[in-house]
Simulated scan of single mutants.
Amino acid sequence: MSEQPPPSPLTEILTSLRDRVMGISQSVLSTADGLLVVHDSDSVHPESVAALAAATLGVGRRMADQAGVGALREVVARCGSGHVIVMAVGDRALLTVMGDDGLDIPAFQRESPATVEQLSRALAADVAH
Rank of each mutant, 00 (worst) to 15 (best):
T96D: 04
C79Y: 15
V59Y: 08
L95I: 01
D104I: 01
D101P: 12
M63I: 13
A125F: 06
G82S: 01
G99A: 03
E12I: 10
L94Q: 02
D65A: 14
D91N: 09
D40L: 04
R18H: 10
G90D: 00
S112Q: 04
S48G: 14
A54T: 07
L57R: 12
V76S: 08
I13D: 03
A124S: 09
G80I: 09
A107R: 00
G99D: 02
D33I: 10
D100Y: 06
A125H: 08
A54E: 11
R62C: 10
P106H: 00
G99I: 01
V49W: 02
T15S: 12
V69Y: 03
Q109T: 12
S25Y: 10
V127L: 14
R20C: 05
V28W: 07
A67C: 09
A124E: 10
R61N: 10
D40C: 06
A77N: 14
A67Q: 07
V116G: 07
T56C: 12
V86S: 08
R62T: 14
D126W: 12
A53D: 04
G90N: 00
A88P: 03
V38A: 05
D65W: 07
G23D: 00
L123F: 03
L14G: 01
S25E: 11
R110E: 05
V127H: 13
D40N: 12
H129T: 11
A77L: 13
D101T: 14
L29Y: 01
L17T: 03
S81T: 15
E47D: 09
L36T: 08
G90E: 00
H39L: 10
L57C: 14
R62I: 15
